[in-house]
Amino acid sequence: MRMTDVTKQLAGLGGAKWQVHLAAREMVAAGADVIEMTIGEPDVPPPAELMETASAAMLAGRTGYSNGRGEANLREALAERYSASSGRPIASENVLCFPGTQTALYAVLMGVAQHGDEVLVGDPMYATYEGVIRATGADLIPVALRPEHGFRMQASDIAEKITPRSRAILLTTPHNPTGSILTTDDLDAIGRLAAIHDLWIISDEVYDQLVFDAAEFVSPLARAAFAERVIVVSSISKSHAAPGFRSGWCIASAAFCDGLLPLSETMLFGNQPFIADMTEQAVRDGSPVAAGMRERFAARAIRLEERLHHDTSLRVHLPEAGMFAMIDVTSTGMDGDAYAQDLLHGAGVAVMPGSSFGERLRGWVRVALTIKEDRFDLALTRMVDHANQRSVAPT
Rank of each mutant, 00 (worst) to 15 (best):
D5S: 10
T7A: 12
K8D: 03
L22E: 09
A32C: 06
I39E: 06
D43F: 13
N73P: 05
R75M: 00
L78P: 04
S83F: 06
P89H: 03
V95H: 01
L105G: 03
A107M: 00
P124I: 08
Y126F: 13
A127F: 15
T128W: 09
G131D: 06
L140K: 03
L140E: 08
I141Q: 01
D157F: 02
T173P: 00
G179L: 11
G179V: 04
S180Q: 05
L182S: 05
I190F: 00
W200V: 01
D204K: 12
Y207E: 10
A222N: 04
V232Y: 06
P243E: 06
W249Q: 00
D258Q: 13
G270Q: 06
G270Y: 00
F274N: 09
R284E: 02
A291L: 14
E295N: 10
F297T: 11
R307H: 10
R307W: 08
T312P: 04
G322W: 01
M323F: 10
M326T: 15
V329Q: 14
G336E: 05
M352Y: 07
M352I: 11
L361Y: 00
G363H: 13
W364K: 10
L369W: 02
L369Q: 01
L378W: 05
A387W: 15
A393W: 13
P394A: 12
